[in-house]
Nucleic acid binder design. Structure first.
Lengths: 233, 233
DNA sequence: CGTTCAATTGATACGGATCAATGCAAGTGG
DNA sequence: CCACTTGCATTGATCCGTATCAATTGAACG
């Protein structure tokens, strides 16, 4: 079994608040799980079975509307906490966007442990508050931004979340992003259609703001230009 | 000074977690404030000065985009907690929708008190988690619902939040809502324009799903019909 | 009774959705 | 190694819902 003290996200996940002894106890409650791309960890409306931390990979939180349209409500990167503690059902599904590793706990075991460890609950509170800020920023995007603004904002958000690799040739501060998402997934995230996303990307490419060396890679050539396209924030 | 033990929201706000003695201590940190309709309590981007509970009235959380458009990101009703604890700036403005009374604390005083009272932090965590669920449901609305669905969902949401008054004449289960919001405010909440909101309301009226005895009142005649218009959820 | 402000209604424009076709890269099997 | 399939992404043509612009109505108030 993998020891928590050697965890890849030991110093970033909410567990950072625990001392060695408590960590030991928590690790006995948890279990590591690997997920394949596309696999679901939690289902919308189901019992809230699991909570946990992302160790590696990217996951998404999503919901399907009656019209069959899919809307993605959030994303999880390594060290992020996922699941719905302190409630009996999970309001949305959690699905792996890439192959992923997560460290999970049954909700009841986690809830019990958390109630006895105020520092952990405090970390969780801080994270939940940030997540709420994040969700509200996204609401702003969904409620009152154009397609160009949405795509630009998405790329900037991604750049801030992903381990950014600077491009070799000294072409100013160009940044290369390996997209974990396909076009359809981006569309679901932004409340647009795949065609609109595609058109916006080609537009940004024509304007020399980004480049697309491959379908799954984006190079930000002109960060300031991209920020201008994204509107304030 | 108003004693916490006699507070109108004593048994619903997060303070319900405190014993008499702690409540006494907290009440010495707080202060009651009255706000007039339209008055701001917190400004977007400012230092996070205050947090608190709504005692009476309705407030909204909002943000102005570069394009001058206003988007409302949330609403606060009596017993709701507002403000951004544990952060140095508030990401959005809080504005009174009606005349209101709030019980406020400086953020720093509240943070310190909360850190020492795990039960209070726990209540706050639960509330923040629900607020996040709520925000995500609203994201779904903003990201992938039509104007009709948005207006219908809004009315249903309001019905669940407001003290509902059943209409006198035995006309089945008709419910009368006194709207705290004007049309423009509804539009900001739903990411629509005032004209579109107005048209949707007239449409629902024609379909005998609602009635509008006055500008600021709505009677839900056919709740099932309204739910159907709102799509699932 | 006029003034004022919000809400409604109408006419038109436009952005993004939808429908349909084409392009392109990565397999797969002969 | 080449034809064929398969799955995404792009591009094009058209349609529809909501925004926008402009006018009218209606209720509250002095």
């Amino acid at each position: 079994m993998t020891r928590c003290s050697e965890c890849a996200v030991r110093d970033r996940a909410i567990c950072q608040s625990l001392c060695e002894a408590d960590l030991e106890e928590l690790s006995r409650l948890g279990r590591h799980q690997t997920l394949e791309k596309g696999q679901a960890l939690l289902w919308e409306g189901d019992e809230s079975l699991l909570v946990g931390n992302v160790v590696d990979g990217v996951l998404k939180l999503c919901s399907t509307t009656s019209a069959g349209r899919d809307q993605t409500l959030g994303t999880f990167y390594p060290s992020d906490f996922l699941g719905r503690p302190f409630a009996s059902t999970t309001p949305h599904s959690v699905i792996a966007v890439t192959d992923a590793r997560v460290c999970t706990f049954t909700r009841s075991a986690f809830d019990g442990f958390a109630r006895k460890h105020p520092d952990l609950e405090h970390k969780l509170l801080q994270r939940t508050l940030s997540e709420l800020d994040r969700a509200r920023r996204w609401m702003l995007l969904l409620g009152s931004k154009s397609a160009t603004e949405r795509v630009s904002a998405f790329l900037l958000d991604l750049a801030s979340r992903l381990p950014a690799e600077p491009v070799d040739q000294g072409s100013d501060g160009a940044i290369r992003l390996e997209l974990p998402f396909g076009r359809q997934e981006i569309a679901d995230l932004l409340g647009l259609t795949i065609e609109t996303v595609s058109r916006q990307i080609t537009q940004l490419k024509h304007d020399r703001i980004i480049d697309t060396p491959s379908r799954r890679a984006i190079v930000i050539l002109d960060r300031a230009g991209l920020e201008a396209c994204a509107g304030e924030l």
